[in-house]
Design a protein around this nucleic acid. Structure first.
Length: 292
RNA sequence: GGUACCAUAGCCAAGUGGUAAGGCCAAGGUCUGCAAAACCUUCACUCCCCAGUUCAAAUCUGGGUGGUACCU
């Protein structure tokens, strides 16, 4: 079984830098694992690696679709598999690097998406139902309905049930080592603020203005969340600069917390000691893993 | 110095005699096809302090302390 190394963690943890270091050291390439960096023109706001950094290591799955286009987990998985397998063919070691936990898990654990789910009519129909109606329907299909699912989760499950797509078992394609980067909370929050200030200075707001000029819709920008959602609201006059700044900072912190919760459940995960020499720790771990 | 008003959680805030709403923040969590999304849980044994009235006080009375506004 081929070996895959993932570098996951919170925003502003230094994943991109470590990914490049590891790729350089182990004759590797980076597969981005980020649901927003797939979009062209979303650069500063996504913390995308620069052109210069891309010259230091080959990066995949960045800038592959245009704004306003839809993207999905299944699509990402397919593209990631292609990119990863391409690396193996060229004798390169792939490193899956990014903060979209669901995406990295779908690849690492081999979520099984055998059937197509693209029935918009059905989706619209389901979205009209109340939460209670969705639960009732799911139960009538003999599905188990865990507590605490959001309407969106329920709709997704019901869509699958109606399509007759059973919950499938995973088919892992690779042997995986996961490196998790989660700085101590207080350090993390400080880094988030510093990084936000820096990106604002570099013209993150102008980036969104440009995207809007080029036709990015409010709906699209709103749906992206964080930087793009709140900068767009600021541009549209919904917030003063102060309000926008505080709100965005808070939302990024919330996001980092959610990421942390998610990564706590990762399997085969090595949580790097972010207070120590984590680069060396990562290099040693990868070395041992590849020699195994 | 005088007069008036106010004092409830980290912040905002409802509650005028019957046993502390709500929002924010924060923390924890859910999540296999929108995931930077969507959603859930927890968070004041106590209402500035002291005394009093009452079966019962955050709520009424007196005093103290602190704040705000106006007057001198």
């Amino acid at each position: 079984m081929n070996k895959l190394i993932t570098v996951v963690g919170t925003t502003a943890s230094g994943k991109s830098d470590l990914g490049i270091i590891l790729a350089q050291k182990f004759n590797g390439e980076v597969i981005s694992c980020d649901s927003r960096q797939v979009y062209k023109g979303l650069d500063l706001g996504t913390g995308k690696v620069t052109k210069e950094e891309q010259r230091m290591a080959v990066h995949h799955l960045i800038d592959i679709i245009n704004p306003n286009e839809k993207f999905s987990l299944a699509e990402y998985q397919k593209l990631a598999y292609n990119a990863i397998n391409g690396c193996f063919k060229r004798n390169k070691q792939p490193f899956l690097v990014g903060g979209t936990g669901l995406y990295s898990r779908a690849v690492a654990e081999g979520y099984n998406f055998e059937s197509e789910l693209d029935d918009n009519a059905l989706r619209d129909q389901i979205n009209k139902l109340t939460k209670e109606q969705m639960i009732a329907e799911l139960l009538s299909y003999g599905e188990e309905v865990p507590e605490g699912l959001s309407p969106r989760h329920l709709a997704r499950r019901l869509e699958k049930a109606k399509k007759g797509v059973a919950k499938t078992s995973n088919k892992p394609l690779y042997e995986v080592l996961q490196l998790v980067m989660v700085p101590e909370r207080s350090v993390l929050y400080e880094r988030i603020k510093i990084r936000l200030d820096k990106r604002l200075q570099l013209g993150m707001i102008d980036e969104v203005k440009l995207l809007k000029q080029q036709g990015a819709t409010n709906e699209f920008l709103e749906g992206l969340g964080l930087e793009y959602r709140y900068i767009n609201r600021y541009i549209n006059g919904e917030y003063t600069y102060e309000q926008f700044y505080e709100e965005l900072l808070k939302q990024i912190r919330h996001f980092a917390k959610r990421q942390t919760t998610w990564f706590k459940k990762e399997k085969n995960a090595l949580w790097l000691d972010m207070n120590g020499n984590f680069e060396e720790e990562a290099v040693c771990a990868v070395n041992a893993f590849l020699k195994k």
